[in-house]
Simulated assay, not measured.
Amino acid sequence: MEKMIEIEKSGRIYLQLYSQLKGKIEKGKLKGKLTPVRKFAAELGISPSTVARAYDELERNGYVTKKEGSGVYVKFQKKKSIYLEDHMESEVFRYGYFNPEFEIDFASATPNETVLPMESLKRAINFVLDRDRESAFLYEDPQGYFYLRKTISERLKKEENINIDIKNIQIVSGAQQGIDMVSEAFLYPNDVVVVEDPTYRGAKDTFKKNGCKIIEISMQSDGFSVKEFEKILKRKK
């Protein structure tokens, strides 16, 4: 199996190994029993603990199963759907390793690391630390950083002709938090929510958690079906 794996002896090696093994499993190139930890580590020239950690990550995300006294076996089902929210505690999604030879994994909801503007980000971080010093690590206003909200307000007014007060802007950590907040504020049990099909699973889970009834509306080449939506509006409040 070592001939299929290329490891750069830098960074998080176990994540490189995990990513490549995961790709081989998903493509059906790796089946049955995996090479024992110590043997595989010797073949790759890395520590056994690194291989063991990669195997642990595969098991945590449903790609392999460990059988006591027997070994580690591939159990991945190709039809199995994997969603980011099912693996929020997994380090691989927080520190994803991207290998260009593999397809982009939409389950991780993260961009290809090779396109991230690292130099610009470093300059921005250093600027903030130099400007705000220790206060950069303190809790911010629950609505979000004031000057960020001020900038958003000014840009919306200038570029989109949308007048919105700073106090009416809420900064969220991501789409899921925004959906959760809007749902808690506006939705009640038995409300009807219309969603596109396909749509983001996290949104549907939030609506279901609030006791809402979900109706899916098919997507067409130019967006969702307006005719279907009209029919739903005539039937449902």
Rank of each mutant, 00 (worst) to 15 (best):
Q170S: 06
V193N: 13
I215T: 00
S10Y: 06
L17I: 05
Q170Y: 02
L138T: 09
P198T: 10
K9N: 09
S81D: 00
M219K: 00
E103Q: 03
F76S: 07
F98L: 05
F93T: 12
Q20P: 05
Y63L: 04
E2N: 13
D141W: 07
S47A: 09
Y200W: 13
Q177A: 09
V182C: 01
L15R: 00
R60P: 13
R60H: 15
K237P: 12
P111Y: 11
A175G: 02
S49D: 02
N61E: 14
S173E: 10
K29V: 11
K236H: 06
R235T: 11
N61I: 15
G71Q: 04
F186Y: 09
L21C: 14
F137Q: 00
E216P: 06
F40V: 13
D165W: 05
S173R: 12
I7R: 09
F102N: 01
E154S: 15
G23W: 03
G11F: 07
I82Y: 14
R123K: 10
S70M: 10
E134R: 13
D205W: 13
F93V: 13
E159M: 07
G69L: 12
E119L: 02
P198Y: 11
N190V: 10
Y145F: 12
I125W: 10
K27G: 10
L30H: 04
P198M: 09
K234N: 15
V193E: 10
S183P: 01
K3C: 03
I152E: 05
K236W: 02
A124G: 02
N190L: 04
N126C: 14
E2G: 14
L156I: 14
E8C: 07
L84F: 13
S49Q: 05
F93L: 11
P189C: 05
L84V: 14
L129Q: 08
